[in-house]
């Protein structure tokens, strides 16, 4: 038995999952996505990574990023370490892929905001 809070949507369902193989015994989910979430939490939990990446020559020093799909929860810190070693040059556009297939997960790291190039001379 495990007590979980579903993080898929604002609903915040309290789930209890026992014998979760195949999703049997998931209680408290108000939608199928909650069942799916409970199943994945019991097996291999995954999360979308979010953070920032350094920008050179930009109007701002960093650009916010996320993975375009969830990656293993255990890989979040390692993903952050990989991105700490990355610098991209401005301009950066929203949705631009900054690092494809991060850590071999099949997920790309994309920018969630644009950063213009810094204006020269100021």
């Amino acid at each position: 038995m495990a007590d979980l809070v579903c993080v898929i949507c604002p609903g915040g369902c309290r789930l209890s999952a026992g014998d979760a193989i195949g999703g049997r015994g998931v209680a408290g989910a108000r939608c199928p996505r909650g069942m799916e979430f409970a199943r994945s939490e019991m097996g291999a939990p995954s999360r979308v990574f979010t953070g920032t990446v350094r920008v050179s020559g930009g109007a701002l020093p960093v650009v916010p990023v996320r993975t375009n799909k969830p990656i293993g929860r255990g890989l979040l810190s390692e993903c952050s370490r990989v991105l700490a070693g990355l610098t991209v040059s401005a301009p950066v556009g929203t949705g631009q892929v900054l690092l494809p297939d991060v850590l071999g997960t099949g997920a790309d790291v994309i920018a969630t905001c644009s950063v213009e190039a810094a204006r020269r001379g100021c």
């Binding site: 898929i8 949507c9 979308v48 979010t50 953070g51 920032t52 996320r66 929203t94 969630t112 905001c113």
Partner: peptide, 25 residues
């Protein structure tokens, strides 16, 4: 929103799990 780089925005409205800056955009 620009400083909320985490996701969790727009699930109800856009049916997508967006980061704060994307929603603001």
């Amino acid at each position: 929103l620009p400083q909320c780089v985490h996701t969790g925005f727009g699930l109800r409205r856009y049916g997508r799990d967006l980061a704060g800056p994307e929603y603001a955009g």
